[in-house]
Design a protein around this nucleic acid. Structure first.
Lengths: 236, 236
DNA sequence: ACGAGCTGGATCGTACATTGTTTATCGAAA
DNA sequence: TTTCGATAAACAATGTACGATCCAGCTCGT
């Protein structure tokens, strides 16, 4: 969170976004993006030689990228049958937002007790931008919303929990980009953010945690409903 | 959970313990064991060519195993500077047991509402074995204790949460094997298990969840205290 | 329908090129 | 003589290439 203008969603400090070398890293990111963004279909086979050809590298970096993705759960392996895209389906989304409902309130509770004046000012600034944008640019909204929550979680001492949150967040962000926010959901997001800021100011950790649980729950349900609707439309 | 006699701790169904090929899998497991069990020191460099020589393979499988471990968080990478062992230190343990405190109660809550007569009988059977063993064989206790909780979580619909629990459990199990249980802790474990079974029988999900939170918290604190004591002893 | 053989691709091994990091050495300045 | 900095050599990570082997799934002939 450096400059006032740039709001590229960034991971909380200390979470390495890349980690490998130049080639391998980009390969990893490219494949990962393809999976999260849905460009690679669920359960699609990931043929090493194809990927190598497509990205203009040899097979070795591809294999390493796939193993890395396997470790992170985006790719499944069957012995001697290679890799497949783990489907980002309703079950997957439900699983990770449910974990969010359990973890985020705890992160929030800590934040409420540690928040500085600057933190609160930052939250309000981002919230102003969110309201100014008012879902006109959904991509921008997504970035700002992520930034809002990152402010709260980025300095938490439990790096594992923060990292887990971030990874889940990235998936949900990508999925939700495929849908529009309903008017009801838009109103709820704005209301809950404002309410959350008020609770942080008041130092009411319990109520803030409870609110965040509702907020995450609502967000997850909203995404799931969209996915269900789309699947029904496709099937019908 | 097949035969009455064997209680090798096993992951909940659907969590692939291996996944890769024969060679690569064993390599992955060997290195992973070395890290978790503490045979590889914290932050120790993992030189690909060394590992390849030591395990009698070429460098390729080693590199893939390391990437997989990176994805799972056991190894850190610095570009062009290779891999290092992620230290399993107090912070690490604290982070994952705190996440357990958040997740396990939710898993338990579900189990209480879904438990069959057979499930409860299984819990009691394992608990009998735990009490029969009475910490005489600490390794066996560890296996039985894991089996006890696996019965509760293995059929949970949220595979992500169950998998997360299992991965964390493996680490904590390995760490706690290096220490003895204090008498107080032993008593608490037995008491809480019995109490938990009673609450499951009574169908009291709220109290069961609360108890599990205390149980996990107590277990985590116990391990942390041991680690602190050992570190203090080493430093003094 | 069924089984033998074929084939694609995964897996692993080996060798080597390139590139970046670390370390040791050497010379110049203090 | 010691210290500092530059340079070079050693080391290791990363990427490429290619060949061997093995297995799952498919084809084709019966």
């Amino acid at each position: 969170m450096a400059e006032p203008s740039d709001f590229k969603a960034e991971p909380p400090a200390g979470i390495d976004p890349i980690g490998a070398s130049s080639e391998g890293a980009s390969l990893y990111e490219l494949i990962r993006e393809d999976i999260i963004e849905g460009r690679l279909a669920a359960n699609e086979r990931l043929v090493v030689s194809d990927l190598a050809r497509r990205h203009g590298t040899s097979t070795n970096p591809v294999r390493e990228a796939l193993q890395l993705l396997r470790g992170e759960g985006f790719v499944t392996f069957a012995p001697n049958r290679g890799a497949r895209v783990r489907p980002i389906d309703q079950d997957f989304v439900r699983d990770i937002y449910e974990i969010g409902v359990l973890i985020e309130p705890a992160l929030t509770r800590w934040f409420v007790n540690m928040a500085t004046v600057e933190d609160i000012a930052e939250l309000e600034r981002i919230q102003d931008l969110i309201e100014e944008n008012n879902f006109a640019d959904t991509f921008r909204h997504s970035e700002l919303d992520t930034a809002f929550h990152t402010v709260m979680y980025q300095r938490h001492y439990n790096r594992h929990a923060a990292e887990l949150w971030w990874k889940h967040r990235e998936v949900l962000r990508a999925v939700s980009r495929r849908f529009d926010f309903t008017l009801a959901r838009r109103a709820a997001i704005l209301r809950e953010h404002r309410e959350l800021i008020a609770l942080v100011k008041a130092g009411d950790a319990d109520k803030a945690a409870e609110l965040v649980a509702r907020h995450v729950e609502g967000s997850g349900r909203h995404i799931l409903e969209h996915m269900r609707a789309r699947n029904a439309a496709r099937a019908g």
